[in-house]
Amino acid sequence: MADDASPGNQSDRFDRLPATATDRTVDGRPTRAELLAWWDERFGIEPGVFAEHTFWERGDGKIWVCRGDLETPVGIEALGMLAVRTRQEHWKPTLEAIQRFGDDATRNRIELATPEAAVFLAGADQELPWDGDWGYLIVTHEVAGEPEPLGVGLYVYDELRSMVPKGRRREL
């Protein structure tokens, strides 16, 4: 229940992430500093990109990003967009966050030709060469003359696995 006094993660309430580890009151909750460092290290998306945004946790390890700020905690249905899942060892960005912020990425992004992008969008895995790290990649393809982030893939064992959620899959 949305009880302002109760500690820990609540599934019906958003808690703003603490700025740094010294501000942390809930065990295991990621900090804003860790989030910004992860975007930067994994994808080369610099902290300045999120200068106007706040990060919030609702439920265990579900991190939302909101432009602007509210008083914390806040018991509402949605706040900005779900951006990252931090529960597993490897943090996983959402398709929506990648489409919105992935433009600024300089690392761990893989450009697909349009037919391969269509396979990816349909939710299918495919064998593709990739020289970089295994793990979550930003998948881009060219739209109107420029590369455009489409979603998140998991690259392991010479294979790009589509992480496109069922509700966003399409056969184009």
């Binding site: 967009m81 929506e96 489409q99």
Partner: peptide
């Protein structure tokens, strides 16, 4: 809102 990349929204 998520598909369209909106982040300045609070839903109740």
């Amino acid at each position: 809102t998520e598909r369209l990349g909106v982040t300045n929204v609070a839903v109740t």
